[in-house]
Every structure is written in C-alpha cells, then in structure tokens.
Design a protein around this nucleic acid. Structure first.
Lengths: 223, 223
DNA sequence: CATATATTCAAACAAATGTTTCCAACCCGG
DNA sequence: CCGGGTTGGAAACATTTGTTTGAATATATG
C-alpha cells in the first residue's frame, strides 16, 4: 500500500476510460495497461468487469446519496416551523449543489455526469437495476418533496417534467465535450461546467413552471 | 427479390437491435440470425459493420433532411412578405412535426429517437463525424432561423438552450421504455409518444423563453 | 439455352475479449 | 528468521468478435 493503491488506480483509470468510450468499448486490457496494473488484478479485486463498473458508480453515488440525504435533512429542519413546504427553487438548488460538490473533490464532474448519461443510454441491464435498487430511495424522497412544493401540478405532469429536466442536465453535461467543441468553434469562449450550470438554472426553473399543456385533442369522452 | 429484400431485412433488424442494446453490444451474428440471413451478407452488402451503422442512420436522416428542408422552404415562403421573422413556436412546431412524420411511416419513432440518443452518447467517433458532415447543413439552416426569431437572446445563450431542448427531447424519447415502465407503475396511464410531445411543448417553449441567467459572479473585470 | 453476373451459404480466419490458473514476491506477526 | 496469507504477474484458456474465402446457387442477359 505504498503509492496509489492498486484498487484505486484501477478505479481512477477505469472511470475516465468508461466515460470517454463507454463500457463495452473499454477492455480490461485497456484499463490495466494504462493503470500500469496487471490484467488479472481486475478480476482479483473486483471479481468481474460488471462488478468493476458497479464499483466505479458506487464510488460516486455512495458519497452523493449520503450528502444528499443530510442536505435534505437540513432543508427539512430549516423549514419545519413554517408549514412543511420547501420552495422548488431551494430543492433544485440543493440537488445541484450536492451534485457539484461530490466530484469536485476529485475534479471530475465531467466524468461523473458522463457516467450518469451512460447509465441511462447504454442499456447494460444490470447497471440500471443496480442503481435503481441501491440508490432509488434518495430519488423517491426528493420527488416527494418536489410534490409538496408544486401542489398545483398533476402528478403525471410533475413526473414527466422532472425527467425532462433530468434529461436536459444529463444530456448536456454528458455530451459536454462534443458540445464544447462546437461551441468553441462558433464563439471562442471556453465554457466551464459551472458556467453551464448557471445557464441551466433559469431554463430548468422555467420548464418546471411552464403552463400546463392543452388536454389531448379528440380524447375519448369520459370512459 | 421476392419478399423483404435481404438488405432491408438486415436494416430492419439491425436498427431495432442497435436501438435496444447499442452498437458495440450488438454483434453481426446477432443481427443476421434474427434477420434469417447469412452472416456474410452484412459484409457483402454493406462492406463493414461501421457502414451498416451509417446506413441505418441514412435511412432515417435522408428523408428527414429532405422533408425538413422543404418544410422550412414553405415556412420561409409563407412569411416572406411580412418581414422575414418566423415565430419561434412555428419553427419548433415545424421541426417537431417533421421528426414525427418520418418514422411514423414505419411506426418506429421510438427507434429513431433512441438511435439519435446513441449517436450522441456513444462516442463512436466515426458516427458523429458522419452525421455532422452529411446532415449538418439542415441544422445550421434551422439555427439561423431560430436566431432571427429570438434576436434578444445572446448567441451563446441561444446555442446552449437549443442543445438543452435537444437533450430534453432526445433523452426523454430515447429512454422512453424505461420511463414508461416507471410511469405505468405509479400512475396506470399508458403514455403514448404523441402524449409526450404534447407535454414537451410548453416545457420547451418556456425553457427557450426563460429569463437570462445572472452574469457569472466574481468574473474578471473587462479584460 | 447458355453464359455471365449477382447473391447466398457454410466454413474458416485472425484478432480481441473476459476469465482462470499457477507461481513468484511481498508483508508482517511469531 | 520464518511461514502463512495477501497481492502481483505472465501465460494460457475458452469465447466471441468482425471479416474473408471459395464453392454453390439463383438471377439475369445475350
């Protein structure tokens, strides 16, 4: 256990390679050679490639869920006296802050968001199940708070809008490199993640507060 | 050339498998066996797996760009007399209608959107380049029209918001199956794509028209 | 009909993948 | 100094991948 542990060296290398090329396109040999670690080390320490992928996620999601829970505890405690409802802006703000805090410690927000994007897009059946089972409860708690913050929104509408916003954020931040290339070609400004989050905020808030859609046309009358 | 051509049978099978699992996770043997076609047929007709992937996209994007161009022609012609500016809502509406029309002919909007999502998320270097080179011009034309429709928006802000909205739509529609499962568990309503588009419209419009973000804090003074 | 061209097919190929094995090196408490 | 459990390492393993081959078959052409 002299310099960076073999395990953490594998995790460090794996997460950036996964983020860059995806899971299937990143071979164990690719990881181990770049990490200067023996090929067998992955299977020795993690058991399989699947487990390595899950471990990569766990290293982000464990601290994230922990912090997010305590952040929500704080928020609820602070609003306990005045009637339970936490404003939507504060909820979104809290989530954003937590998401930004966790990977900031290792300067790898981009990697984190890209991994989240992959978890959604790459079917990788086992991954979605793992994340849902392991970390679903925080999200449930959060959506319940959002529900209380937006009592006028029909349940279905709020559900979809939350996922719309999730899509906006994950898509943007996970495809950030490609977008940044285009953006820098058109306007030479170099955009940072924090800059993007600043731009995202009003859009997300406006989207959540958008007027309700017109009811479906030609709907079957009161079934 | 009796029943469904070998080439189209390959394309039909490949596009749904690609959409379900991604490109790297879908093997040629997987495609050919399900399509009841000989393994060598793919390399015979398309040359390589890469070319097959591009062909799958071309079958959607060729008709799409053609229709979109003529739709924009119509729109410009209709607004020619009154001073050039086409309202943002009409632009978005036109794009949405075109996106919905093309795959509707084969009842595969879901597949189309999922493929678009993959094109973004799966690095697959060659794919992004191919799409950009082959179909970039329509998007350029569209963004220029959007620019004229939103003269108050700074260029950079409009650029990013367009991509935010793109993210919302692609993410939602491409992850639709998973989301639909969750939605149906919570509210038994079965959501259709058209229903989702109806819900998306006000959110997207509100996002584009959101107030400008506060300027970055602690910015270096006039460089 | 005969010939040439296009397509299909089964088999094999080389390369790359995740995983396992087995032995050497190491570390640390006795 | 030693000895047992943990970690590191080279090689081999069994699969799976995309691709190629060459013969068989169908299709079209003169």
């Amino acid at each position: 256990m002299a310099q960076p542990d073999t395990v953490t060296r594998i995790l460090d290398t794996a997460e950036v390679l996964f983020a860059e090329r995806g899971f299937a396109e990143t071979s164990l040999r690719n990881i181990t050679s770049k990490a200067k670690v023996n090929l067998a080390a992955v299977n020795y320490h993690f058991g399989s490639k699947k487990s390595l992928i899950q471990a990569v996620f766990a290293r982000y999601l464990d601290p994230f869920t922990a912090r997010f829970h305590t952040a929500l505890d704080d928020l609820e405690a602070r609003h306990a006296g005045e009637g339970d409802e936490i404003p939507l802006e504060e909820l979104l703000e809290t989530m954003a802050r937590t998401v930004l805090e966790v990977p900031a410690e290792r300067n790898s927000l981009k990697v984190f968001m890209r991994l989240l994007g992959l978890a959604y897009s790459q079917a990788q059946g086992h991954l979605r199940r793992y994340i849902q089972d392991e970390y679903g409860s925080v999200f449930t708690r959060f959506t319940e708070l959002v529900r209380r913050a937006t009592p006028d929104l029909p349940d279905a509408e709020r559900f979809w809008r939350l996922h719309f916003m999730l899509g906006t954020v994950i898509f943007t931040l996970s495809g950030l490199d490609a977008l940044r290339d285009i953006a820098e070609k058109d306007y030479d400004e170099h955009v940072t993640v924090r800059d993007l989050v600043r731009r995202l905020r009003p859009v997300v808030v406006a989207g959540m507060n958008a007027p309700l859609p017109e009811p479906p046309v030609a709907v079957r009358q009161a079934s």
